[in-house]
Structure formats: C-alpha cells, structure tokens
C-alpha cells in the first residue's frame, strides 16, 4: 500500500494515511452524460425529419409518362411509390431535396446538391437504423456519411460563408465545430472542472457582495468629504492662506453626489 503520510490522530496514536487520492469535501454531484451514438440525429445535427410522402405518387422515372396517365388504374398502381421498393421512395425524396437547393435544373454536382443528397440519405438511414439497430452495414455507412457531410460543411463555410448559412437553414441542420482536443470523460477530470466552476462562482458572488458594500459607502463618504472641503475652503479664505481647495473641486464632488443619488433613485423605482 502507498502510505506516504503519517497522521497524528491524538497525543498517543499515530496512523498511516494514503496521500494520493485527494477527496473533496464539497458536495458536488457529478452525473456522467449518457453515451449518445454518433448516428443519432441529436449528434449528427439533423433538426428536421424527412417529409411524409404521398404513397399514390408515381415513381420518379414515370412521372411525366403520357401513356401511364391514360392507362388502367391497376397498371398505374404498379408505378405508385407505395407499391414499390423503399429505394424508390428514397430516390424520390432525394430528388425533391436537391431541387430545393440546386442552382439550375441540371445541377446535381454542386456542393449544395451534394449536401442535400447526403442529408436525405442520412435521414432515411437513421430511420432504417431505428427499425433495425443491428444492421451494421447501414450503421457504418451512416457514420461515414455523417462525417463526410460535416467535412463538406466545413469546406463550404470556408469558401462561402453566406451560402453555408443558407444551406444550414434550408436543410435544417446544426453545425458545431469539432473540439480542439479529444479526451475520454473521466470522473477525476470532470470533478476538477466542476470544482473550478464552483470556486469561480463563489468568487463572483463574494466580489459582487463586496462591490455592493463599497457602493453603499460612496454617498456618505461624498457628503462628508463635501462638508469638510467646504470648511477648509472657508477657513483658508478667512485666514488668507493660499487656497488648496477650490470651488470647482467642490462643485465636481457635488455633481458626482447628485449623479449617484439620481442613479440610486432610478434603481429603487425599477425594483418597485
């Protein structure tokens, strides 16, 4: 055992004490934050969700088909999104989202279009992962995609800040820069930080209290000072000694006193 210190418990008794594990007496309770998977929307910065779609909507490729418009209802239903694989719905949503942000009708490769496409993919994968949490392929792809989107957002911010802000609004995203340094969350370090914050708070409170005390002493001090200065001024005139206290100085002090008094009045009125 590491006994580095000898404690004297009474006049006769001595006791060995460990010196390395300092335990604070402060009643600070530390709650370890729950681990949030990086695939969750709260972590990835997705505020918005995918729009709900009309299941009777036709597939993307057959939307403008004239033959389909005049076709039998049974044939038409074969091309509805509800009767097609989920991938078709995803494709449809992706196209919708890209059309919201693209620069011109043929633009599918600009940064905005890329970000929009990624966002829809991420959101649909997040829904998928909620249903099947053990689908590792989706999980890995999703994680990679989220990281990539974050990197692209970082680039866009550097290239064109206003466009970046506009994109955040359009896609309903939150952008937080990564922390400068990675570290694991430990009990010791967290408690150190909490203790520091606690000490800082105590310091602020005490300073505020002391400031209040000093401020209250200001008006009596000024009143006293004006009285004494007036007395000295009068005596110096009477005894015909060179003046050290001029009327201007007294006027200055009086002005300050008035200002302080008016300020205090306004404060009390505010409180009422």
């Amino acid at each position: 055992m590491n006994f580095g210190k000898i404690l004297r418990t009474s006049s006769v008794h001595w006791q060995l004490a460990r010196d390395y594990a300092f335990k604070s007496d402060l009643k600070i309770k530390w709650v370890r934050p729950e681990k949030l998977p990086c695939t969750k929307p709260e972590k990835s910065g997705d505020l918005g969700k995918l729009p709900s779609i009309n299941e009777k909507e036709l597939r993307l490729d057959f939307k403008n088909s004239k033959e389909l418009q005049d076709a039998d209802p049974v044939v038409q239903s074969l091309f509805q999104l509800g009767n097609n694989p989920l991938a078709e719905t995803s494709r449809y949503l992706r196209d919708q989202m890209i059309k919201e942000v693209q620069r011109h009708p043929l633009d599918y490769g600009s940064m905005e279009a890329k970000l929009a496409r990624m966002t829809v993919r991420i959101r649909s994968m997040q829904e998928q992962l909620d249903k099947f949490p053990r689908n590792i392929k989706v999980k890995v792809t999703l994680k990679e995609l989220i990281d990539k989107r974050k990197k692209f957002l970082k680039y866009l911010r550097r290239w064109d800040y206003r466009r970046f802000e506009w994109m955040l609004e359009k896609l309903d995203l939150v952008y937080k820069p990564p922390p400068t340094k990675f570290h694991w969350i430990t009990r010791k370090e967290s408690l150190q930080k909490l203790t520091d914050a606690h000490c800082e708070q105590i310091k602020e409170e005490r300073l505020a209290e002391y400031r209040k005390v000093l401020n209250e002493q200001k008006i009596p001090f000024l009143e006293d000072a004006i009285k004494k200065m007036e007395f000295v001024h009068k005596e110096q005139i009477d005894l015909e000694i060179p003046l050290t206290v001029t009327e201007e100085q007294i006027a200055d002090f009086k002005r300050e006193l008035e200002y302080l008094k008016s300020e205090r009045e306004t404060k009390t009125e505010d409180r009422e």
Binding site: P33, E112, R157, R162, E165, L168, Y175, E189, L194
Partner: peptide
C-alpha cells in the same frame, strides 16, 4: 437557389444553428 443579393450578412445564425463563434467541448457533465 441561393442569391448573393438577397442573402443577409454573416452572423444571423450564431447560437441557433451555427456554433463556430465559440469553442466546443466534449460534454462531461449532465
């Protein structure tokens, strides 16, 4: 599409969507 003439100057999303004006940290306490 995005239009430079309509876009307001930088900084309107500070604290709501864009958190680059401060330093982020790894959450250590709930």
């Amino acid at each position: 599409a995005f239009d430079y003439e309509k876009a307001p100057p930088r900084g309107r999303l500070e604290g709501t969507r864009d958190f680059t004006h401060g330093e982020t940290y790894i959450k250590y306490h709930e």
